[in-house]
């Protein structure tokens, strides 16, 4: 009986502790900066076009082949009296969120920092009634970055905390 009494005592002791449960749908816990939901494309605020040039790097590196990329000549290029320095630009882009396995490889291989993993709650709450709705097109992929609703984290492979703080210090010197 001693053991049972001991376990009951522990149960009551735990009962008096502070609860750890979160009231999920009404309370969203703050999620860390590195959190990885599904990938989305980023919007270049200065020139008002996507960063993505449609170079197919992410499409080739994707282990589950969830991306489809088509590029076109940029109508806004400088040679055509535009403002952009991008000769080519993304025409059509689909990501099948149902296939994506969130491995972050597309973000690592991107040469233009044009793609990032969604680190907001919008990226996690993507339930739909039809699987077709999980195939995201260019407008859907860009919309969150366009409205400024994301503070993306694009890591450089092998970057240590020291190199990050050095880069930050250089940045602040330049801006000063």
């Amino acid at each position: 009986m001693r053991g049972i009494a001991k376990s009951m005592a522990r149960t009551f002791a735990v009962f008096l502790r502070k609860p750890v449960t979160r009231d999920y749908p009404s309370y969203h816990k703050p999620i860390p900066e590195r959190d990885r939901a599904f990938p989305l494309l980023l919007w270049d605020e200065d020139i008002h076009e996507p960063f993505c040039t449609g170079c197919h790097a992410c499409e080739r590196a994707c282990p589950v082949e969830c991306m489809t990329v088509l590029m076109k000549d940029n109508p806004n290029h400088k040679t055509l009296d535009g403002t952009s320095s991008r000769r080519k630009i993304i025409d059509k882009f689909w990501i099948d969120y149902a296939r994506c396995m969130r491995c972050n490889i597309c973000v690592e291989v991107c040469n233009f920092d044009a793609i990032a993993m969604n680190n907001t709650w919008e990226g996690h709450e993507t339930s739909v009634y039809d699987r077709q709705d999980l195939v995201m097109d260019l407008q859907q992929l860009l919309s969150q970055s366009r409205t400024g609703n994301i503070n993306e984290w694009v890591p450089v492979l092998g970057q240590t905390n020291e190199t990050i703080s050095e880069a930050d210090a250089e940045d602040s010197e330049v801006s000063n």
């Binding site: 999620i31 860390p32 590195r34 959190d35 990885r36 396995m101 969130r102 491995c103 972050n104 490889i105 690592e108 993993m117 680190n119 890591p155 492979l157 092998g158 970057q159 240590t160 905390n161 990050i164």
Partner: peptide
Amino acid sequence: EEVSGDRMMYAYFRPGGVAWDV
């Protein structure tokens, strides 16, 4: 999740080391 960005499928270790610093 704070370290690797994911709760179960971390994809954090890389040949040669780890992907990002903690």
